[in-house]
Design a binder for these strands. Sequence first.
DNA 1: AATGAATGAGGATTCATTCAT
DNA 2: TATGAATGAATCCTCATTCAT
Lengths: 194, 194, 194, 194
Amino acid sequence: MATPHHARRSDTRRRIQEVALRLFAEQGYEKTSLREIAERLDVTKAALYYHFRTKEDILVSVSEDLTAPVDELIAWAQGQPRTLATRQEMLRRYGDALWGAIDLFRFFQENQATVRDLAIGESFRRRLKSLSELLKEPDAPMTAQVRSLTALLAMHAGMHAMQNIEGDPEEKRAAILAVALDLVAQADADLVTG
Amino acid sequence: MATPHHARRSDTRRRIQEVALRLFAEQGYEKTSLREIAERLDVTKAALYYHFRTKEDILVSVSEDLTAPVDELIAWAQGQPRTLATRQEMLRRYGDALWGAIDLFRFFQENQATVRDLAIGESFRRRLKSLSELLKEPDAPMTAQVRSLTALLAMHAGMHAMQNIEGDPEEKRAAILAVALDLVAQADADLVTG
Amino acid sequence: MATPHHARRSDTRRRIQEVALRLFAEQGYEKTSLREIAERLDVTKAALYYHFRTKEDILVSVSEDLTAPVDELIAWAQGQPRTLATRQEMLRRYGDALWGAIDLFRFFQENQATVRDLAIGESFRRRLKSLSELLKEPDAPMTAQVRSLTALLAMHAGMHAMQNIEGDPEEKRAAILAVALDLVAQADADLVTG
Amino acid sequence: MATPHHARRSDTRRRIQEVALRLFAEQGYEKTSLREIAERLDVTKAALYYHFRTKEDILVSVSEDLTAPVDELIAWAQGQPRTLATRQEMLRRYGDALWGAIDLFRFFQENQATVRDLAIGESFRRRLKSLSELLKEPDAPMTAQVRSLTALLAMHAGMHAMQNIEGDPEEKRAAILAVALDLVAQADADLVTG
DNA sequence: AATGAATGAGGATTCATTCAT
DNA sequence: TATGAATGAATCCTCATTCAT
């Protein structure tokens, strides 16, 4: 048959994840009801419960799938020397990860209050903490540490909060990366001179 | 008597605003129910409706009270020459405004998805846009523009997202401001050399 | 002084009655809230309670004032001989009473379900019963009795339910009365021939 | 099995309609709460919302089901010659329709104020207008037009407002129809002599 | 003659979730 | 692999009414 059993299965599952993520990102987690997700997919609410245990579970599954690259990035960075070059490569790779899962990260950014007491929030914060610890030197001058974190922020916000800047998206992304790279470079310089 | 008429009057209203803002900031807007606010104040839900027309109205009233300084700042900046000195003074003043209404801005930051389709969200975005337009030169090189916006972001996030950095809060605040000032200074330099 | 105490007093009272009746007639009793009445008058809800004991009380007071003519009509008719001429005169006078309190009767007509278990509903039904008993002969043929009641109905409905008929309102009113008079005349004729 | 799938399904839905209509007719629309309907059926309020989108929707669905005969009658009459015989046959059929959905029409009659701004009110008025236009000649003398409308009114009111007349219900119904038939006959005569 | 502040009861509606089929 | 039917708990909000001032 053209659509074997297991192909169909994962198809619905994946479609739920896609639609859910889109709606979560567009409207927020709380304002997106399972009814709405089901309606968009033309299935019943009960069907969602066949594939996922709870509403939160849908989000968790999406998040696990899409944040894997970030975990890989962290694992990679932990095996590298703590040099400026490593940090800059981290930012480059992080940029790729962010752009590969833009809806999810936008969701995290805009639903922090909601996400905070979901299980998922904890792992999000853990990841951010790992990243920032790899990016900054714990005993660097405070200004240097702030610069490193700001580099991270700039990349996060760059995805959606920089719409006030006109111009080609790719070019904008490059400019954001450039600024971020510059910030960690300055932080690195502070280590010597500061 | 100890509690004269008009003191009592404004008292409840103000207490509602205080408790509501705290809960909105702590738990998020949607997850804070009017029942909860009422219980904390030991009044009935209906009492809230005597003082405010809707749940959203509570938020609006709080926001109007607390964002006035930002509007004043914008008005002030519009009358100043568009120089680096002006921009840096803007950031200093913005820092004061942010710290004076820290709960509210944290709320905005963490409830973007919710706030987006509240009437209040529009004015929040308008304010941010005004600020960013005053802070950057529209025909500056893109990197310069990104730097200016990043200065804004750093200050916003500084309020709560930089808990990974240890140290005295006041010192941290100063470091954040320093980095922000530096970013606009670099953006300004780009104008000449870029 | 220009507006002595007791003049003012009855003024507000009367204004409440007027506005209340208009709103009750326009929107229905349940859908008209005391808040709305108070707002239209630019007073507080509590002010209404100074003048009337309950919401129902407002309606009762209005009704008592405006239905007095009907009670007088009934009293008058009870002292008259039970002839066709009396009945026709009743209808003429009833028409005057209806047109003199058109909002109230429209209200009764359109809010029967509501009015039914208000104290006022009982007296309304009693009045109607008295009228219909004076208008028909209890042991007349059933068709005759139906005709008499139909005369009453026509006059009631004529106030508002005959908007499908075009033409001058006064002329229409006359036509309705003519038909009603004719109906009781026919009922009277039935007594002999039926 | 005793209660097959689809039987159970439509059962609850229909029971909701039945109970709702009865309560709406007995107590009025506004004074009937969904809680009360649910309690009578021994289901939860939420169950009502599984079957109907809103409270108004319950009423709409009931009305659509029960007023179909009237629409058929109108369609039929529009294909007939505009003669006295047609009109009288209309009244006979209308009587059947009314008695077949006596609760609904009583509801309309007694909740006019409520029904007015429900979507359903519009269609109710439209139907009445169609009927009255088919029943009367637009350029007939006004008295004739009033007579035709009065025939309609008599039938409506006959269902419940003629309790002052004693006697067998069926006989009463026949008498009402006779009077109505007579009224259109007289209206018809007016056309020639008037 | 009227107000400001508050209450208690109840309204319609929505939600995530369950379970037998 | 799904569905139809239902629930329990919660939501925001409105209402008539009260009472001290």
